[in-house]
Simulated assay, not measured.
Amino acid sequence: MAERKDKRKVIGEPMTDEQIKLFLDLPPEEGENADFHVLIRAYRALRVEDFERFLAFFIEQDGDLRARDDKGRTLIEVMRGHGKNDDYIAVLEQAGG
């Protein structure tokens, strides 16, 4: 079956460093770990290649790749509960998460 032209996935333009760095400043909810908050927001919003670039900026700012959520889980533990994200897990592990 041929893919309909109007149903193709549109990715858009590559993100600039400045756009990716905006994720570093996302304020957490009260009581939420700030590092975990920006990590999970970036994971949910960025393509894997942009997430990898984000992690480099995050580490430059001394971000904690092993920050925990309110349930005591690290981002990699949360990611392992999701499907089809092996690329994200590999990038995070390579960064030291």
Rank of each mutant, 00 (worst) to 15 (best):
E93K: 15
F36E: 00
P28L: 07
P27Y: 04
L75V: 06
M15I: 00
K9G: 05
D64P: 03
V78C: 11
A42G: 00
V48M: 01
E60T: 02
G96N: 01
F57E: 13
E32D: 13
K5E: 09
D6T: 10
I11H: 13
D86P: 00
G31C: 08
D70Q: 07
D25Y: 14
A42F: 00
G96K: 04
Y88R: 13
K9P: 06
V10N: 09
T16N: 09
T16G: 06
E60D: 15
K7S: 05
H82I: 11
T74W: 00
I40G: 00
T16H: 09
G63R: 10
K9M: 11
D6C: 10
L22Y: 02
K7Y: 03
A95Y: 11
R73G: 00
V91T: 04
R53W: 02
D70G: 02
D50R: 04
F58I: 06
I20N: 05
E13F: 12
V38L: 01
R53G: 02
L24S: 08
G31R: 10
E18F: 01
D6E: 15
D70I: 07
G97M: 07
E77N: 08
L55D: 08
L65I: 09
D17I: 04
Q19I: 06
E29C: 03
A67S: 14
A34F: 04
R8K: 15
E13K: 15
L46K: 03
M15F: 11
D17P: 05
G12D: 06
D6M: 06
K21H: 02
I76N: 12
N33E: 13
T16K: 14
D70P: 00
P27K: 15
G72S: 06
E49F: 12
I76L: 07
G12Q: 08
H37Q: 01
R8L: 14
M79D: 09
R4Q: 13
K7E: 12
G97D: 09
N33V: 04
G83T: 05
P27R: 12
R66H: 08
D25L: 03
G72A: 01
T74S: 03
G12F: 07
K21C: 08
Y43V: 04
P27A: 13
H37A: 12
